[in-house]
């Protein structure tokens, strides 16, 4: 299978603490992959390493954008460069720009695909005007797809929780990624919203051809939409496989689902 993301032997140390230990993971083209594990297992740290927020202590992060067959090493580059290369993410605790409008939030996602500099913005020549118009149009189109079009001019902070989560996805999509990293997209959503989210994520994969790697605690959601699942605990990978394999894996049940069943 064609590969979108390949992570090899990734380790991350904080001082003396090993948060990630020799992790391998890969996401294929047009695949939905879930990363699960108990709280504190290192899932978000894993995302932060991939997206350049922390430089990993050891290991490689390799990506292959659409249409390219070679893998490109991206560890150690800045978060904004990672985004430019086509990886976009959402955050576990929503990090929108609260005092900007919904549309502007999405337009920020367009930033790295636009070119206007100070001079261009001040003089507002034809290319800048066109670029700006297109950004507005594209952003609006994304909002329509995500189902937030009616809120375009609303401040992001005034949206409902579920809508804010969706806006984060919209904003990430505006950066034209080939791989979307979703950090607990269903957290705090009601069953209805979760079902809609399930639909939305599948649509993003099917219609936009974007691969998806997500961290999620909602097992129903994970099992229903993932092609493959990786399980981590204490920074190590303890299992990987299809939802069915994971469901019946005794190690996983012991380390993770057992706990979850009690909760």
């Amino acid at each position: 299978m064609e590969c979108a993301l390949k992570v090899q032997n990734l380790s991350m140390d904080f001082g003396g603490l090993r948060a990630l230990d020799d992790l391998d993971l890969d996401v294929g083209r047009n695949e939905i992959v879930a990363l699960i594990g108990p709280n504190g297992a290192g899932k978000t740290t894993f995302f932060n390493c991939i997206t350049g927020i922390y430089p990993p202590t050891e290991g490689d992060v390799l990506i292959s954008a659409r249409g390219k067959d070679r893998l490109e090493r991206i560890n150690g580059i800045k978060p904004n460069k990672v985004t430019e290369k086509g990886l976009a993410r959402t955050f576990q605790n929503i990090r929108l720009f609260p005092n900007m409008t919904v549309l502007e939030n999405v337009m920020i996602g367009r930033h790295c695909r636009m070119h206007a500099g100070i001079l261009g913005a001040v003089l507002r020549g034809p290319s800048t005007t066109r670029e700006e118009k297109e950004a507005v149009k594209d952003s609006y189109a994304i909002l329509e797809k995500i189902g937030l079009a009616q809120f375009v001019n609303e401040f992001a902070k005034n949206l409902s929780y579920g809508a804010q989560r969706r806006l984060e996805i919209a904003r990430a999509m505006a950066t034209e990624p080939f791989l979307l990293l979703l950090d607990e997209p269903a957290a705090g959503m009601n069953p209805n919203e979760t079902r809609e989210l399930d639909e939305l994520i599948k649509q993003i994969r099917d219609k936009e051809g974007i691969s998806i790697l997500l961290i999620e605690h909602d097992m129903k959601l994970v099992m229903s939409m993932s092609d493959r699942i990786f399980v981590v605990d204490y920074g190590r990978k303890i299992a990987q496989g299809t939802p069915n394999e994971i469901r019946n894996n005794p190690v996983v049940i012991k380390a993770y689902l057992g706990e979850e069943a009690d909760a």
Partner: peptide, 26 residues
Amino acid sequence: RLQNSRIGRAWVALREDELACQAMGI
């Protein structure tokens, strides 16, 4: 002119949330 341009929006986004701003490619 700058306020509602690509640059101006990036400034405001930076004010609102530095990390998210970087993660969005700024």
